[in-house]
């Protein structure tokens, strides 16, 4: 049963990701990506990592994708053509619906077959406490390096995205 679920979820992930990278409308792409993340989260759960599964939903599907949607809408990167004003056509919403239904089905199946509840916590199950110790103990240096990277990425994005100084523009206009 778990094997069937695994392949089913794998299929959903791959289809959703393929649809995500082939959509022209960025909002549609984001919706498919959220689907793919949900399927991934269930896969992680199936592999005995409920913590990672929860984060996949909370951080990736929840926080990051909402941020994506927010930026897309704020910068108006997905203007709706006149023809689409009536709302999406059936071939635009049907795949999402099917994928979502598949995910709901898989979740229900997972609840039905969850062996972890009957047998107690599996051996490889990492509690948030274990995870925290590994992250800030064994991999503390890696966390530090990554945080440095993020700092410099933020600085760089700020620098490259910042408009040129006004003084220089004035100079050029005057010249």
């Amino acid at each position: 049963m778990a094997t069937v679920l695994f392949y089913l979820l794998g299929l959903v992930t791959v289809i959703a990701t393929l649809l995500a990278i082939t959509r022209r409308n960025p909002v549609h792409a984001v919706i498919y990506l959220v689907n793919s993340f949900f399927a991934l989260a269930l896969l992680f759960y199936l592999l005995g990592a409920p913590l990672v599964a929860a984060w996949e939903v909370i951080i990736y599907a929840g926080a990051i994708m909402v941020l994506f949607l927010f930026i897309i809408m704020m910068l108006e990167l997905a203007p709706t053509p006149e023809a689409d004003r009536m709302g999406p056509t059936w071939w635009q919403w049907l795949p999402v619906l099917l994928l979502a239904l598949a995910l709901v089905g898989c979740t229900l199946m997972l609840i039905g077959v969850d062996a972890g509840v009957a047998q107690g916590v599996p051996r490889w199950y990492a509690t948030p406490r274990d995870f925290g110790f590994a992250l800030f103990g064994k991999y503390a240096l890696a966390v530090e390096v990554v945080s440095f990277q993020l700092l410099f990425a933020a600085v760089g994005a700020f620098y490259v995205g910042k408009p040129e100084r006004k003084r220089r523009q004035k100079k050029e206009e005057g010249a």
Partner: peptide, 29 residues
């Protein structure tokens, strides 16, 4: 291999920015 990945990403990330550092020039971007 984790160290390899981290080290590589550290300077690659910085180089993305440094390459486009000349903001006035389209070719740099």
């Amino acid at each position: 291999l984790v160290g390899l990945f981290l080290g590589l990403e550290t300077f690659t990330l910085v180089l993305y920015i440094l390459i486009a550092f000349n903001r006035g020039e389209a070719i740099g971007a």
